[in-house]
């Protein structure tokens, strides 16, 4: 069975590691990018099933990344969970208009992330041999 592939796009190594830790009990392949530009480059060679995307990043932020993703007919339906430090309704409505399937406010618990991801991709527990 092919493991679910998750792309984590965040300039913070701490957040990328927290995401990796959350999915460790599941059959997942986690790929990482430090900003939107790097994320688009990863997607072109290694298409994920789910993107966990930070809102605020240097080089290319989450909104610019999403606009480019949605402009590509092959990628416009790719599932994205947005991570924001600030859950103001205005920001949430901006990301919702760009087709984000769900969002999570930092800081988040592993269980919150897994619950949202589990609604978008099938998470299969890792078998420990």
């Amino acid at each position: 069975m092919t493991p679910v592939k998750i792309l984590s796009v965040d300039d913070s190594q701490t957040i990328r590691r927290m995401i990796g830790r959350a999915f460790r009990p599941f059959e997942c392949e986690i790929v990482e990018a430090e900003n939107g530009e790097e994320g688009l480059s990863v997607i072109s060679s290694n298409r994920p099933d789910l993107v966990i995307l930070d809102y605020n990043m240097p080089v290319m932020d989450g909104i610019s990344f999403l606009r480019q993703l949605r402009a590509d007919p092959d990628l416009r339906r790719l599932a994205v969970i947005m991570l924001t430090a600030d859950s103001s309704p205005e920001k949430i409505s901006i990301v919702a208009r760009l087709g984000v399937r769900d969002y999570l406010t930092k800081p988040f618990l592993d269980a919150e992330l897994l619950a949202k991801a589990g609604r978008l991709v099938k998470l299969v527990p890792r078998v420990i041999s």
Binding site: S12, Q13, T14, I15, A85, D86, K106, P107
Partner: peptide, 17 residues
């Protein structure tokens, strides 16, 4: 350094709210 940066970002998010 990265952890402190992210903690600061999270606190700023709550202030921004």
């Amino acid at each position: 350094l990265d952890l402190v940066s992210e903690l600061c970002n999270m606190v700023a998010g709550k202030v921004s709210e």
